[in-house]
Design a protein around this nucleic acid. Structure first.
Length: 437
DNA sequence: AAGCCATCCAACCGCCCTGCA
DNA sequence: GTGCAGGGCGGTTGGATGGCT
């Protein structure tokens, strides 16, 4: 187990890749696509195992990789995603176009962890270190693996680390603490993804429970960690259909059950502009072109589902991601230093069609209006300064992302009626959290 | 200049999951 | 149902690099 058959073969090179090897691999995949990875090294003339080739491609040679340092906004996003997803680097990477799981993992281990600790935050639990220490004293881990890193709603509440000092403690956290960190045993460090309790708690955590209003503007800021109004109340009838549930939800706006959220919910469409560029005189150069105003990349075989160019030199794939990403509006910090001015206008023009709003799941009161969110002043959590910009990156739905996403739930059907959308999305989300309504 | 140390990050390892025969 | 092969993921390792003494 572990080692693949190809790895047992003799004479396989290990270690750093030489430029020649890179060229061979790039050439091969550009022309033929990777197909079966185990056959790639042989066909490409490489003395490597298939896994090694795959890794090299994914982490280094892919044309849509964004090179360079992570922006503060990306770091913030990683931190928050980590709070939700734990060490699921691939899922986190799926939310950061152009970044690889390996890259993010390295950043986390080398940089972000340290920063969080410096700020008195335990990077595993996202709790204040003092609290973690207290917890440890009170409840020493009996069985090591899950205890010390178990993820609870209270952990998530600590996301509001920079909450004003006078903010009141959560009114529901004690009752809504997640104790179901059981199905993620694959990773000891992986917190249980928060279910609806998490978000309810999040709603409540920074709010006075006596506040009864639930302004859409508050909800708009949900993902920006604005203070939210929350009235613990009601109200789904378990026999209700999804659309009825939505209706009920609309009517009361204070559900005891929020539609579950998963990483896939965070996703909306983006387009990514690959930042890797090869020398123009490089015969393996992967150029770009625009088709119908959409950035495309000549990456024959890069995406098997891509449309093919007929010039024989390459095929063109459309990198417009119509699947998933955090709603560009839900995170107010954005990636200002990643976006290019010229791209932004184009991206903004895509926003309307790209946005997957909460409203699609939760109906209008949760609508995260573009203008509304734009005017929100986000409350920084981990960083002192959180620029108020959109997280607009030109994203890609590359084959690798699609691979990532095949575990996830594609939604945002463009042909379905709204009610169908709601039902489907709710079902998907329920499945995503292993729950049923 | 040399040695030591810390950090970064590319790559490997081991395991799990899935599809298929 | 079972075993195998391949893909994917997360954890870990180790080489490269830079700073400091």
């Amino acid at each position: 187990m572990g080692r693949h058959s190809c790895c047992y073969k003799q004479k396989l090179r290990k270690g750093l890749w030489s430029p020649e090897e890179d060229e061979k691999l790039l050439n091969y995949i550009t022309k033929h696509g990777h197909g079966c990875w185990s056959s790639v090294p042989k066909l490409a003339g490489l003395q490597r195992c298939g896994k090694s080739c795959r890794l090299r491609w994914i982490n280094y040679l892919r044309p849509d990789l964004k090179r360079g340092a992570f922006s503060q906004q990306e770091e913030n996003l990683i931190i928050e995603l980590h709070a939700v997803l734990g060490n699921r680097w691939s899922q986190i990477a799926a939310q950061l176009p152009g970044r690889t799981d390996n890259e993010i993992k390295n950043l986390w281990n080398s940089c972000i962890k340290k920063k969080l600790r410096q700020r008195g935050i335990d990077p595993n639990t996202h709790k204040p270190l003092s609290e973690v220490e207290n917890d440890y004293k009170e409840k020493p881990p009996t069985n090591n693996k899950n205890n010390d890193k178990a993820f609870t709603v209270s952990n998530v509440n600590e996301l509001n680390l920079i909450e004003p000092a006078n903010s009141k403690p959560s009114t529901v956290s004690s009752s809504s603490k997640l104790t179901t960190n059981n199905d993620h045993s694959s990773s000891n460090l992986t917190p249980t993804p928060p279910t609806q309790e998490f978000f309810l708690d999040r709603f409540a955590s920074s709010h006075d429970s006596s506040t009864t209003s639930c302004r859409p503007s508050d909800l708009v800021g949900y993902f920006s960690f604005q203070k939210l109004s929350y009235k613990p109340n009601i109200c789904f009838n378990s026999n209700s259909s999804s659309s009825e549930m939505i209706s009920e939800f609309n009517s009361c706006m204070t559900p005891t059950i929020l539609p579950p959220i998963s990483s896939s919910m965070f996703q909306t469409s983006i387009t990514v502009k690959p930042s890797i560029s090869l020398p123009s005189d490089n015969p393996n150069s992967i150029g770009s072109c625009e088709v119908n105003g959409i950035q495309t990349w000549e990456t024959s075989g890069f995406n098997n589902s891509g449309s093919s160019c007929s010039n024989g030199s390459s095929s063109s794939i459309e990198l417009q991601n119509n699947t998933t990403f955090f709603d560009t509006n839900t995170f107010s910090w954005g990636l200002p230093d990643c976006g290019k001015p010229g791209e932004e206008a184009h991206l903004r023009s895509l926003e309307n069609e790209q946005d997957i709003k909460w409203s699609e799941y939760l109906s209008t009161p949760f609508l995260i209006g573009t203008t509304a969110i734009q005017n929100q002043t986000s409350q920084p959590m981990y960083s002192e300064v959180k620029p108020e910009t959109h997280f607009i990156t030109e994203g890609s739905s590359t084959s690798w992302q699609q691979n990532h996403q095949h575990h996830q739930y594609h939604h945002h059907s463009q042909t379905s009626q709204p009610s169908e959308n709601y039902a489907k999305n709710l079902q998907r989300l329920a499945v995503a959290f292993g729950q049923t309504f």
